[in-house]
Computed example of a mutant assay.
Amino acid sequence: MLPEDTLLVAREHDRHVLRRATANGDLERVRRGAYRPVGPEQNRHAAARRLATDRLRAVHRQLRARHVFSHESAALLWGAPLWRLPQRVHVLVPSSPSSRAAADIVRRRGVPDEHVVLRALPVTTLRRTVVDCALTLHPLDALVVADWALGRGMDRAAALDLWARPRRRNGTARARWVLEHADAGAESPWETWVRYLALRAGLPRPRTQLPVEVDGRRYRVDLGWAEEKVLVEFDGRVKDVDGSFGAGYDADHARFEDKVREDAITARLGVRPLRFTAKDGPDPAAATAALLRAFRPAVRGSLRVNPLLPLPGASF
């Protein structure tokens, strides 16, 4: 049996053997000319990330020209959470792409001298990856990456310096907004989603991981506006599954502790946190309206939607 991380490139093997193994269910196609052993069952998101990563490995084996993985492909290799997984592989190459290039590869001209090697693959630096994503992705997608990168130690000033260097000017205003509003306190893409809706609506910048002291205990709320007594939490389904955070994780006990925590915060501040879940994702306009209703009429009346920021698309 082949190791799980095996990648077979057609030009290096007997194509008839590969086709037969695929028909028998022993191999599966990663992209044209590349195959891998059928792996163990995984949850949908983990399986999709694995497939997207294996596509990058396949392209690296198949491309003969010098290349560096970039944009959302680089973010994937860095381990960043992504609002939507890339459907195509993004690379930087030394020369202009041919009109006969594969449809599942996005080639951009320009291989940077400064890059790193991750998982044996050449990848743009974290700072360059974040700036490239900010310039080309939907601002929510880019903000998810930038939030994560700040939490991993990326220097915001250095990223803004790279952004300011001469380059094509399309998307630069949105990119600067992403870099300036990234927040290391966001602990999940869905927390970023809620914050993005708030900022898009024109609300002041919230504080992430807002501390609340109650009877000598320190609690945190995902994000909030303390002066307005508006608190927001995102509830992920993973919290309701035993073992989600290790073998000893008890979902029922976690729910009880969460209830105690919420009651304490409510008693201290006189307001119960507003909760969102992934079920709110398909209708960001309705989620925004629910958020705004928590604010005073005077605040709501002063708000203006940021024209740079479109409504979010669907998540993966």
Rank of each mutant, 00 (worst) to 15 (best):
H90R: 05
T124H: 07
A182L: 04
G171V: 08
F256K: 14
V260H: 08
L56I: 15
V123C: 13
L7N: 09
R300I: 12
G25V: 05
E257Y: 04
V194A: 13
T125G: 14
A102N: 02
L309E: 06
R31W: 08
R300K: 11
P189I: 05
G216Q: 13
P312F: 05
D283G: 00
R176G: 11
V271L: 11
V117D: 14
V131N: 03
A10P: 01
H60R: 08
V145W: 01
R174T: 15
P297I: 14
L118K: 10
S70C: 14
R167F: 01
L121W: 13
W83V: 01
A158R: 11
H138C: 04
A175L: 04
D183C: 12
V68L: 06
R66G: 12
G153H: 05
V17G: 00
G25T: 07
K239D: 06
R32S: 10
L27R: 02
Q209Y: 07
L118T: 07
R20E: 06
V38I: 15
N170Q: 15
T172D: 06
R275S: 09
R168Y: 05
G281D: 07
L7W: 09
R61G: 00
L203K: 04
L8I: 07
A74N: 10
D161F: 00
V131C: 09
V178C: 06
F245M: 10
P139G: 13
V260E: 12
P166E: 10
A46Q: 13
A101W: 03
D155T: 00
V212G: 04
R119Q: 15
G25M: 08
F69R: 10
T266K: 01
S96E: 14
R100T: 15
A80T: 04
G171N: 09
R165Q: 15
A254F: 04
E12I: 00
L82R: 01
T277C: 09
G202C: 09
R205C: 03
L223R: 03
H45V: 15
I105N: 02
W163Y: 12
R61Q: 14
L303G: 07
V238R: 15
R156G: 05
P273Q: 09
P97N: 08
G110Q: 01
R296Q: 13
P3N: 08
T208A: 14
T192D: 03
R275N: 10
A101L: 12
A134W: 01
R49V: 15
I105E: 03
S73C: 10
P139E: 08
L2M: 11
W193Y: 13
V271P: 03
E41W: 09
A34T: 06
M154Q: 01
L291V: 12
A164V: 02
P189L: 08
P86K: 04
P273S: 10
R32I: 02
P310Q: 09
V232Y: 02
